[in-house]
């Protein structure tokens, strides 16, 4: 586990221990078009959205938060299907099956992105 990941894990753990406990809304991934991805953990805390944003690399081992919030499992599985990111101990196959296109939501790199 790299230093950045330990940091992520600690922050999310601290977040999940707050009182009243924040409700996890979603885990969002978005392509930054340079081989890195935005990973956004969205919480509902005291009547408003609180989000934590991280940038991860394609081949990082990301710590799953399914042990903090059971509902996070399906969100992480979806990210695995759509972007091919890796979460510790989580397998994909949530929406796609082995014969589906691989990582359909990955975007082309910035240099070739002018497709308007």
């Amino acid at each position: 586990m790299s230093a950045a990941e330990i940091d992520l894990r600690k922050k999310l753990e601290r977040m999940s221990l707050k009182s009243p406990r924040p409700r996890l809304i979603d885990v969002i991934a978005a392509d930054r078009r340079d081989g890195t991805y935005d990973l956004i953990y969205v919480f509902h805390h005291e009547g408003a959205i609180v989000d934590h944003r991280y940038v991860v690399n394609e081949d990082d081992d990301i710590t799953s938060i399914a042990d903090l919030y059971a509902g996070a499992l399906c969100m992480e599985r979806e990210i695995i299907d759509m972007y091919g990111l890796k979460f510790n101990g989580v397998t994909g196959g949530f929406l796609l099956d082995p014969s589906s296109p691989k990582n359909p939501l990955r975007q082309p790199r910035k240099e070739v992105a002018k497709d308007v």
Binding site: I25, I28, A30, V42, E78
Partner: peptide
């Protein structure tokens, strides 16, 4: 760039 839906049924 990206549109993400978190539908209620997903959770």
């Amino acid at each position: 760039d990206r549109i993400k839906l978190r539908t209620p049924a997903l959770v």
